[in-house]
Computed example of a mutant assay.
Amino acid sequence: MTRAWMLPVLLMVCGSLVGGILVADGSLGAGVALLLVFVVLAGLYSPWVFPRPIGAQEARRRSAVDGRPIVYWRPGCVYCMRLRFRLGLDARRLHWVDIWRDPAGAAAVRDANDGDETVPTVVVAGRPHVNPGPEWVREQLPR
């Protein structure tokens, strides 16, 4: 859990320090603008951007019942964020597994990627697909 929050906290601390220095030097507008940029970046890299993750075993169980794909991801991954944002509201229809929170999820990704933790890895009907396009993932959703 703490590893997922390291980058967002670091961005907030850096933004606060640099913004504070600019404000202290008399550049109020630049300091506030820079702080806002860092706050937005911290929010984008935080685990809050993604739907609530579940464990790998629970995701496999749910996927077997409803046929929805499983997305293995990790916070801070730009490809995962791209997939999440491009899917829009459809992202809520997928089962998201955070490999930093779930060792079984990390093991599943390593098994699918010859030992590498390459994300996003999307599993559809038991077959892994590494970094697929958002349009393809949307097509895999049951109607």
Rank of each mutant, 00 (worst) to 15 (best):
V78R: 09
S16I: 10
P53F: 06
A24M: 07
R82D: 13
V78H: 10
D111K: 03
S46M: 05
G133F: 08
C14D: 01
S27Y: 09
P8Y: 05
G88I: 02
P128Y: 03
L34N: 01
G31K: 01
L41D: 01
R138E: 11
L22K: 04
V137T: 02
E117K: 01
S46P: 03
Y79L: 10
A108V: 03
V18D: 01
L94I: 08
L28N: 10
A104M: 06
S63F: 09
G76F: 06
W48Y: 09
R84K: 09
L10P: 11
L28F: 13
L87F: 02
A42I: 07
S16H: 05
V78K: 09
T2I: 14
V97F: 07
R143L: 10
V78Q: 13
C14G: 06
D111Q: 14
L89D: 09
M1E: 10
T118C: 09
R82Q: 11
T2G: 06
V97S: 11
E58Q: 11
G105C: 01
V32W: 00
P134F: 01
V124Q: 08
R93V: 14
Q140L: 00
G115C: 10
R101P: 11
R74T: 15
P128C: 08
D116V: 12
V130N: 02
V65W: 05
Q57C: 12
V122P: 13
Q57I: 10
D66C: 03
V65H: 12
E135D: 15
N131W: 04
E139L: 11
V39Q: 01
W100C: 10
V71A: 13
R74E: 15
V122K: 05
R138M: 10
L17M: 08
L41W: 05
A42S: 14
N131K: 07
L7P: 06
P51F: 04
I70T: 11
W48N: 12
V130R: 06
A107R: 06
P53Y: 03
S46R: 04
A42W: 00
R62Q: 15
W136E: 12
V71T: 08
G115M: 08
R84A: 09
P142M: 01
R82V: 04
F38R: 04
A33R: 05
L34K: 02
Q140C: 02
A64G: 15
C77G: 08
R3N: 14
P69M: 07
V13L: 15
R52V: 14
I99T: 13
L41G: 03
V130I: 10
E58G: 06
G105Y: 00
L17F: 07
L22H: 04
L10Q: 11
V123L: 14
V37H: 00
R127Y: 06
R62W: 09
G67W: 07
R127E: 13
N131A: 15
D111P: 02
A91Q: 06
R74F: 14
M6T: 13
R82E: 10
G88R: 07
A42R: 01
S16V: 09
R74V: 15
T121M: 13
T121E: 11
R84D: 03
G20R: 00
R61Q: 14
G76S: 10
I54W: 00
A91E: 03
F85H: 08
V13G: 04
Q57A: 14
H95A: 02
G20K: 01
I54F: 00
L35W: 10
L22Y: 04
P75F: 08
G15E: 01
S27G: 15
A56M: 07
P103S: 09
